[in-house]
């Protein structure tokens, strides 16, 4: 009975909207015919698609202000390190974002990898201390044993080249790090045409200027590569580092194994 009532109601509404050809309605139809045709919309909206799998996506951000990294997401937690918003090269201090969570008061904290010694430390900084989240679908992996480096995009290898790594006295540190800057047009053949800054630090050269950060850069001695020849940096032949610069954005995670 209710279904019948709904059907009747809809039929009456449809008739009222001119949906039926009633006797005497020809004048309305005639007026419609005189109107210009409705335009075709200029936009064609495609089918909404779900987000692609984010298995190969990582997040990074940059510090907006000097911030304290703490062992837990709480203002009362112990301090791991004080972080500055810029690197020794003057670029933004970029951090890998691992997760976020609110504290008991509802303030949001972000867990980040820290560019400090010992390598591999993490800490929590206030969300308001960092800027926009950005994503990377690339991953740079350095194989110290095989003396090769590979760049992956969406999980697929898109670049592979021989490298030089640290000697036994000045080893390249292993671990999970981040590519956090790209330097170009400096006058130093030793570093080649491009140098990427990373969050990895030499555990040996602690008194090195600017803190002993490990870079990925070109070289003036390509005949030494591949080999264990550096003070901890990852050296590449200049054509390779130039090609890598076209493929690898800042914010790319770096794994040294």
């Amino acid at each position: 009975m209710a279904a019948l009532a709904v059907t009747v109601t809809i039929s009456l509404l449809w008739a009222g909207l001119g949906g039926s050809h009633r006797p005497g309605a020809s004048s309305v139809t005639g007026s419609d015919a005189a109107l210009p045709a409705a335009p075709t919309p200029a936009l064609t909206i495609g089918r909404p698609e779900p987000l692609r799998s984010s298995g190969f996506l990582s997040r990074w951000t940059s510090l907006r202000t000097t911030a304290l990294a703490r062992v837990r997401p709480a203002a009362s937690a112990g301090v791991v390190a004080e972080l500055r918003p810029t690197t020794p090269e003057g670029t933004a201090n970029v951090l890998a974002v691992l997760r976020a969570r609110p504290d008991a008061a509802g303030a949001l904290w972000v867990k980040v990898r820290l560019p400090i010694l010992p390598n591999g430390r993490v800490g929590w900084v206030r969300r308001q201390a960092v800027g926009a989240y950005q994503t990377a679908n690339t991953h740079f992996v350095v194989d110290r044993r095989g003396l090769r480096a590979t760049l992956y995009r969406d999980g697929k290898a898109v670049f592979n080249a021989p490298v030089g790594v640290g000697t036994a006295s000045w080893p390249t540190p292993a671990g999970e790090f981040l590519v956090r800057s790209e330097l170009t047009r400096y006058a130093s053949p030793f570093y080649g045409p491009v140098a990427f800054g990373t969050s990895a630090r030499s555990a040996v050269l602690t008194d090195w200027p600017a803190g002993g950060f490990v870079g990925i850069h070109g070289t003036s001695e390509p005949q030494l590569l591949p080999g264990r020849v550096s003070h901890g940096c990852i050296r590449m032949r200049n054509p390779d580092i130039l090609r890598l610069a076209e493929l690898m954005p800042v914010g790319t995670p770096l794994t040294i194994q």
Binding site: S62, E89, A92, A132, W208, F213, V214
Partner: peptide, 17 residues
């Protein structure tokens, strides 16, 4: 709407080499 952080520079590297 925010500004892109500065991640590129022309300064000389200070990396361990």
């Amino acid at each position: 709407i925010a500004r892109q952080p500065r991640t590129k520079a022309r300064s000389k590297p200070k990396y361990t080499g």
